[in-house]
Design a protein around this nucleic acid. Sequence first.
DNA 1: AAATAAAACTGATCTATATCATATTTATTA
DNA 2: TAATAAATATGATATAGATCAGTTTTATTT
Lengths: 231, 231
Amino acid sequence: MHNTGYTNTCTVYNSKLSCFEALTKSELEVIEKNKVVVNYRKGENICKQGSFASHIIFLREGLAKVYLEGNPKNLILKITPAGNLIGLPSIYDGNNIFLYSAATYINSVVELIDINVFKQLIKENPKFAYRVINVLNENTVQIYGRFYCLTNKQLHGRLADILLCLAQRIFYDMEFDLPLSRNDLAELTGMSTESVIRVMKDFKDDGLIETSGKAIKIINFEMMNRISEVG
Amino acid sequence: MHNTGYTNTCTVYNSKLSCFEALTKSELEVIEKNKVVVNYRKGENICKQGSFASHIIFLREGLAKVYLEGNPKNLILKITPAGNLIGLPSIYDGNNIFLYSAATYINSVVELIDINVFKQLIKENPKFAYRVINVLNENTVQIYGRFYCLTNKQLHGRLADILLCLAQRIFYDMEFDLPLSRNDLAELTGMSTESVIRVMKDFKDDGLIETSGKAIKIINFEMMNRISEVG
DNA sequence: AAATAAAACTGATCTATATCATATTTATTA
DNA sequence: TAATAAATATGATATAGATCAGTTTTATTT
């Protein structure tokens, strides 16, 4: 009955598919030579929407949000755990502009790969290009799902979604320490901070989750899942 | 002050960039040999989310909507005028499943290109692959903008957006005959049919647009633009 | 041309969720 | 350890926009 793959506000696509696997040894060396490693502290901006995109960003360690800058509110497109690329949609002809901003949730390590080198590899190695297309499409699916949820589900469904997503795709555990504030969760679910707190309380009162400080534990997975689906 | 490119619910990216230009004569012949031309009447389904994607769809003539199937509501991702590809995100490793549905607004002509042929061309011709990446990224920008608008702007802004989009990017005229019903507009702007009608009336009462039957004329472009921006 | 169906329109009501105001708890700094 | 700031929590109120229940207009079929 239910449809294929869009039932989730979840911001992470859990595939370990890397486009770099399609590169030859010498091509990988080219990347090595043209990359820089940078450390970011919690809360810092990795890239800024509208600025010149001189590089493709690989998040080696950490956790980041990718978001559109808006007035008065931003819109989080996705959360990116380690192992993912940021800035692929900047690969355009002509203008290399970051289409979104990104910022870290926790201390993170990033590799900056020269965008022209990256582009050149695409133009030279069709298998690499094919992999890049795959990654882009994975991303598209994910954003579509999120788009659907934010525009169609209501508060309880959206928050359940995100909590499940964090448990299943970021922390791989039903019990985790959340590095996000209620305010971050609000931004992520497109609701007000107060509503996040209230819905959270509902979940607690109904025995679906337990929280203490930064720790969150999903107790009734089944029910949370149903709430996420029903909206 | 305002940010770069996301201020629009608009569903069409008006670039005439075609990925086919990167193909050689013999490659184009391969496509010719492996494609089928099909006519669709107004309102018919071109592809169905979740079904097997055996082909990439090129909309030769007509106008279509691309949407996610949802319960109880669908979510329109974009409107596609003639000259665009439908189904590119289905290019995945493994499963070739349509990630969305598409249906015509008016009688349309479509070319169906075998997806494996298409994939093979990507793998053989990196320039073609690069072009496909460009098209995918254009699409991404567009969806991001729409995502932002539908989650952040309110009714008047969203409807103004769509009307401007139709005028500027679909009909290339401030005066046009709208092949969409109020209900279609509602689906497109994520509002109820009644609200579309009411906001439309507001625009008319304020002398921003004129309507009679299917005809719509944007009179005060400046003001409509401001409404679209302010939200 | 009459009958029927589908859009378009209008007003009244309802509701989900934001906003505001304030209190309490937790974290950070001095 | 006190002082300050930030995050979390809670209740009261406001509101944008949906839903419902109709009426009128336009389109389609017989």
